[in-house]
Nucleic acid binder design. Structure first.
Lengths: 196, 196
DNA sequence: TTGAAATACGAACGTCCGTTCTGTACGATC
DNA sequence: GATCGTACAGAACGGACGTTCGTATTTCAA
């Protein structure tokens, strides 16, 4: 099998496994079984577990950006792009892009107290960039006069993200659909009361 | 050492370890080292890892109830008791009652896709009871005319919990204090705009 | 066709896991 | 003071972990 092709196969499966079992719970043997390879074959591509974890986070970032971030830039900036982001995120979760739910939220809460896991910084970094994106979109909408000028964009980002986190908990409770409904209502309410 | 005393010592340490390493990442050997006992000594109290995990969830429930739930019933019902709950939850997190943050949110998102872990049901059950409590407090406040009659108590619970989840993410990003400030503002805003 | 490089297998290593078993202190009971 | 049961240590097990290494197979260029 060609080098890149095999590496991609491994990573795509590893990302899904990590989203379910956790980034730390990810095991080389488990990945090997899942892609029908030997452990030695996996180690030929990733010299250590830490490097596999780092590559997994990188791949998850690409997937998330492709599913949630990049599509919204085809929409006009401001409020419409902001709404596109919330829609894209709900669609991303509903489509089970990651089998375990939201890869980054799972990883962040799993690793936030484990300093010895190298991938922790990459996860936090990506999460921070996502929050900055929401904040930036809010600033744009304010500049365009679509959201109230006195709105705190950071608080706006906090509340929008919080709704998304709520869905994840409802999902964990086996009430995914109700969670979506509540989160959509909460997000919409946030946008409405933030509008001019 | 007396049976109960030793069992309590083990559980108290195991709860803290599980809140950091995860309920599944908890290991008998790790607990044994932490309490300066042998693995055999631990197994004398808990015949299997699953039973240890179950006891840990039970102990964590007691701790959470003691820190967040029970104190609020010394306050008058309705809006004041609701405010007491949000204050108690922020205090519970700020005090690092669990070293790893919120034990139950960590455990819920860790286990939500792992059906083979028996403790998963207990975690979800306790989480559900907490949400029901918030909802019930909202219903009481509505009945007393302190919150708007047309308010959806389940959505209220969703939004209040979501703010708490936001703090956990901010904590994972190393911005705990900012997270507290944002969550307090969001919670207060929710209560204000839900009031009559 | 031949040679070299890429690619993956399979075995082995030391460590840690959960679990079980035996031995041994200690404290209460009669 | 002998007896008994509790509480724990310590060793051992089979298995999974991450990692390394030697070898076989494939791939492609010369």
């Amino acid at each position: 099998m060609a080098r890149d092709s095999s590496r991609e196969t491994i990573l795509d499966r590893a990302v899904q496994i990590a989203s379910v079992q956790g980034l730390d719970g990810l095991s080389i043997g488990g990945v090997a079984t899942a892609v029908a390879m030997s452990k030695g074959g996996i180690c030929a591509h990733f010299p250590s577990k830490a490097s596999l974890q780092a590559a997994v986070v990188e791949r998850a970032t690409e997937i998330f950006r492709g599913a949630v971030v990049e599509p919204i830039f085809s929409r006009p900036p401001g409020l419409e792009r902001l709404r596109a982001l919330t829609d894209a995120w709900f669609a991303y979760l509903a489509a089970e892009t990651f089998e375990g739910g939201c890869f980054f939220t799972n990883a962040l809460l799993e690793l936030d107290n484990l300093e010895e896991v190298e991938a922790r910084g990459a996860v936090a970094g990506q999460y921070g960039r996502y929050l900055d994106l929401i904040e930036r979109l809010a600033v744009e909408a304010i500049a365009r006069g679509e959201l109230r000028a006195e709105l705190n964009p950071r608080r706006f980002a906090f509340e929008l993200l919080s709704s998304q986190l709520g869905v994840l908990v409802w999902r964990g409770l086996g009430k995914t659909e109700e969670g979506f409904a509540l989160a959509r209502a909460a997000s919409n309410d946030l946008l409405v009361r933030s509008a001019v």
